[in-house]
């Protein structure tokens, strides 16, 4: 839980230093860094290592910024994380930054579950349906889950729209 609190505070502070129209750029930079660290586990392990010295971590971050074309402000932010010994929470901070940017830009990230693959037309229809319940842009991340038997289930951390056959059967069972 402390991870969440720390990540929220740092990401909130960083976002406040950006103009709203630059937030998309920041999101891209965060995503580039996250993808890079995902593909290069050793660098991530080095950055979060408690035994590695902070000056070396900063050097690595400097080089990363050059290579990944990360803005100076985001790079400075990463160095602040190193100085405050909070680089350990880098992954959570990055996740929170994207979440908070989406919140500010009224973008809602949802997980979509269906029992079978669906075409883009159905995906669009579901997106339109979800938009009824949220006032903003809807991003759906689709995956297959046979357990829902049919229909679909859309959810994020605060809202669940359950139009699955499994749920209908459960409601049907409850009536008896």
């Amino acid at each position: 839980m402390i991870r969440n609190i720390v990540a929220k505070r740092y990401s909130n502070a960083l976002i406040q230093t950006f103009q709203p129209d630059k937030l998309k750029l920041l999101e891209n930079e965060v995503k580039i860094l996250t993808n890079f660290l995902r593909d290069n586990k050793q660098i991530e392990e080095f950055l979060i290592s408690p035994v590695a010295e902070n000056r070396f971590k900063k050097e690595v971050l400097e080089k990363l910024a050059e290579g990944l074309k990360i803005s100076d402000r985001f790079n400075d932010f990463l160095k602040v994380l190193v100085d405050a010994d909070r680089i350990f929470f880098l992954k959570d901070v990055c996740h929170q930054i994207v979440r908070q940017i989406h919140q500010r830009l009224n973008i809602y990230d949802f997980q979509l579950l269906t029992a079978y693959p669906i075409d883009s037309k159905t995906l669009k229809k579901i997106k339109e349906f979800v938009k009824i319940y949220v006032s903003g842009e809807v991003h759906l991340k689709h995956s297959i889950d046979k357990r829902i038997k049919g229909g679909f289930l859309v959810y994020n951390e605060n809202l669940a729209i359950n139009a699955s056959i499994a749920n209908s059967l459960l409601n049907f069972k409850r009536e008896f």
């Binding site: 605060n158 729209i161 359950n162």
Partner: peptide
């Protein structure tokens, strides 16, 4: 049960959730 299935009102559950 047959009657229930025939007259079943397809319902979508929309709820605010947490984990």
């Amino acid at each position: 049960i047959k009657e229930k299935i025939e007259k079943y009102d397809y319902r979508i559950d929309v709820s605010e959730v947490g984990r």
